[in-house]
Structure formats: structure tokens, C-alpha cells
Amino acid sequence: MSLTVEAPVQANPVEAFVRTERIPHVWCPGCGIGTTVNCFSRALQQSKLDLEKVVVVSGIGCTGRVAGYVKLDSFHTTHGRAIPFATGMKLVNPELTVIVYSGDGDLTAIGGNHFIHAARRNLDLKVICVNNFIYGMTGGQVAPTTPVGAICTTTPYGSFDEPFNLPFLAESAGATYVARWTAFHVRQVTHAMTEMMRKKGFCFLEILSPCPTLYQRRNRLGDGLEAMKYYKDQSVVRHGANTKEIAISFQGPIVVGKFIDIERPVFLERMNKQLTRTLDAEYAGCVGENVCG
């Protein structure tokens, strides 16, 4: 008769933030998206925000599925339009902390126009972009973030056009918080998410994340663990780095850190100031009972 020792059952601390009835999720073994959701759950915990007032808005794609797993008011929108949806929601109810959680293709290809305009307006949105260098959900096509030389289904001879350097794009368009980490940097990702939740303004976090099924495999880069080793070995922390100089090349060094953290009046502050100045007592305000009645 063998002796069995039952370990005490411990609840996973992130379970409180996840729709556990929807598990198992759709993500592949070795994918980094789930890791970022763990970080997000811990950041929610640390932020001390009233979770009833936190909303996640996603677009379409693998990361777009995050909205379906978080135990919050969550909206899975159309491809590229998470930011416009979030814009309408935040303007109508500024009490809400509105988090846009989506992928690189969704946010910066089909949704690229919305991304730059939301940053320009300094809408108070927290944009979390999981960048796996590829279109995962549709089977591994080239993305606006794919490093030059990478093999994708639509660049079978290697990608040749210049990818976006997302932190530079975000800063240029007017973001007030810009950071980049990888799925290896779970503590830093969690910390960045917590900072964003506490900060007012358009915040942008890029998280590099493995896609073992499509990006790693097609480029013979090993599995998710190999990707983690790459992130570990090649990441260089440079807080405050000039975003212009941190483009990513194929398997090249990755500059990570917090690059931008500035203050700038948000859209609603500017609007309220202008309308108060011009309309004075006639200005009936923009939010609260007026809109939500």
C-alpha cells in the first residue's frame, strides 16, 4: 500500500479575475498571451481598482480573445475597432477604467488609424498590445510588426518590408506612457500594467510574446521555451531610451523598459476647459446623469 500525500488545495490567485467556466482557453501551449493575462490579473489586484468599474475591450485575433476570459465587463468588438469602441465608452462614462487588450495586427494594421488618433487626442485608454510578430488566428500571415527576413505564410520567401517600431509610433502620435516588455518579464509587465491603470492618459504597453505554432515553428526558432530564452538573452533594459532607436530586427536585441511617462491633459479635460471658457454657465457638462440617464 503506497502512501499518498495530498497537497493542500490552493486557489490560483488569478482565478478571481478569470471566467473559469470558459477554461480551457483557445491559446496554444507555449503561447504568451495567457502569461500576460496572469500579469493582468495580478495588476488588477495590485491596482486596488473597483473591478466593477474596469472594462476590457478587445478586437479580433488571438489576443482579441482576452476579453472573453477576464471576469469583468468585457467587449469583443470587430477587427481593428477596439479603440473606437473604447472611445465611445470612456467618453460616456469617465468613471470606467477602459483597457484595450489586443494584438499587433488588430491594433496597428486594420486598427492603425484609430490607434494614432486616440493617442493624438490623449484619450484616457490603457492599450495593451501583445505582439507576436504574426497573424496567429488566421494561420501565420505577415504582420506590420514582422521582422525583416521572417517566414510567414504570405511571405514564404521571407518578409522584406519594414515593420513598425510600436513604441516610436505610440510616442510620435502622442501617448503619455509607453513601455515594452516581453512575456518573459512577468514582474515588469505586471508593474507596467499597474502603473497604466493608475495613470491618466493614453498609455501603451507592448508585450512581445511567443507564437510557437506559427512564428517560431515556421522560422525554426524552437518552441515557446526557446522564445523565452531569446527574450531573456537578448533583452536589454533601457528605461527612457529614445524610441526611435529601439526597432526590432529578426532575432536581434530587444530594448525593453519604460520609455515615456509624461503628463498631458486628456481629451475630456481639454473639452471641458474649452466649453467652460466659451459657454460659461450655459455649458451643461458632458458626462454622468446627462448621458447615462
Partner: peptide, 27 residues
């Protein structure tokens, strides 16, 4: 502004229309 509400001029009609959904689900 004199009634209490918001107009926002978006960057295109894709955004204008989707902004409605966010506004509506916010109430």
C-alpha cells in the same frame, strides 16, 4: 454642450459607427 452630452468627430466612419457601440453599452 448646452444640453449635456458629447459630440466627437472621429477619424473615419468605421470609428464613428463603432464608437456608438461603446457609448451605448456605457448607457
Amino acid at each position: 454642450p448646452q444640453v449635456g452630452g458629447i459630440f466627437v468627430q472621429m477619424e473615419d466612419e468605421l470609428a464613428s459607427s463603432m464608437a456608438l457601440a461603446g457609448a451605448v453599452w456605457a448607457g
